[in-house]
């Protein structure tokens, strides 16, 4: 199994979307998945043996589908369900990927998910992440970036080969 940073991040991302959002992500994006506008993003900062942040950004209308999968007919009972769902997805991805980098004995503290505005500049112009994955999810896409303080940046267009 490939143990590159991108593969580790992809495994945590796929596990979370499949088991929490009940939706299977794909590395091969369709034209429709690529076309949707960027939405706001969320970041989770973490502290422990390694420190940094994980950013989850969606494009297209994937959040209504995920909320419907998570809650079914109860979806209307939770205020701000789409934002809450995205924050929880980021939190779970982060919690699952950190042991891949620091080992199972490492103890981390994760901050509550924090909203960040959609960037005006394309992601390629932003500082390079340690690992980045872009997956197709239902009608849209999700981009996950892992930033580790002090670590060398990984390849900018990550693929889980």
């Amino acid at each position: 199994m490939n143990n590159s940073p991108v593969s580790k991040l992809f495994r945590a991302t796929a596990l979370t979307f499949e088991e929490l959002g009940f939706i299977v992500p794909s590395l091969d994006l369709t034209a429709r998945q690529r076309a949707g506008a960027d939405s706001d993003a969320v970041e989770v900062r973490f502290r422990g043996p390694i420190e940094g942040r994980l950013v989850l950004r969606t494009g297209g209308a994937i959040l209504p589908a995920i909320v419907a999968n998570m809650l079914g007919e109860d979806a209307g009972a939770v205020p701000n369900a789409e934002r809450d769902a995205l924050g929880e997805m980021a939190n779970v991805i982060c919690g699952n990927v950190l042991p891949e980098f620091a080992g199972n004995d490492a103890t981390f503290n994760l901050d509550a998910p924090r909203w960040i505005a959609a960037p005006n500049a394309p992601a390629a112009e932003a500082p390079a992440a340690h690992a980045r994955v872009l997956v197709g999810v239902g009608p849209g896409r999700a981009e996950v970036q892992l930033y580790i303080n002090g670590a060398a940046a990984g390849q900018p267009e990550g693929r889980a080969a």
Partner: peptide, 12 residues
């Protein structure tokens, strides 16, 4: 849980 959607999901 600080996530309302996660509380709802656990309850479900």
């Amino acid at each position: 849980d600080d996530s309302a959607i996660m509380r709802q999901m656990i309850i479900k």
